[in-house]
Design a protein around this nucleic acid. Sequence first.
DNA 1: GCCAACGTTGGC
DNA 2: GCCAACGTTGGC
Length: 154
Amino acid sequence: MNYWLMKSEPDEVSIDDVLGMPGRKVAWFGVRNYQARNMMRDTMKTKDGVLFYHSSCAEPGIAGLAEVASAAYPDESQFDRRSKYYDGKATREAPRWFNVDVRAVRKTRLVGLPELRSHPELEDMVLLKRGNRLSITPVTKGQWQFIVAKLLDK
DNA sequence: GCCAACGTTGGC
DNA sequence: GCCAACGTTGGC
């Protein structure tokens, strides 16, 4: 069992959007970073815990709880010429990009960056490291438990 | 809109 | 394989 933080721009897909989708599930397509891809493809497993993070918005922060809902499979958008995620170097035989499905569990109050930074228990979170831009980052079991038990419903 | 930080590309 | 140039991310 692993834990993750996954960033989404709420203008694109918010926690509320996912809660409203069939099965409360969404394909996490569009990741075009090799580190993030490798984590989805090689390490993520169904039922892994996910902190659903809203980024590039007025109030960036953790906005909900979710879980990994599938193993990784080829990201359809890489084959779609009309998609902004189209990749001409990817083929059906040799896909370059993969995604998992993510199921929303529940919305939480918004826990913003300043609040996360204020807790010494979270100082090693990859999300909070200087210059970090990865859209998918691992979360330790200790960080997960602290956030879920102490912050989300405060 | 700014800009720091980081990833990718491509010429050599 | 180096590295300068360029593109992207994302908080502010």
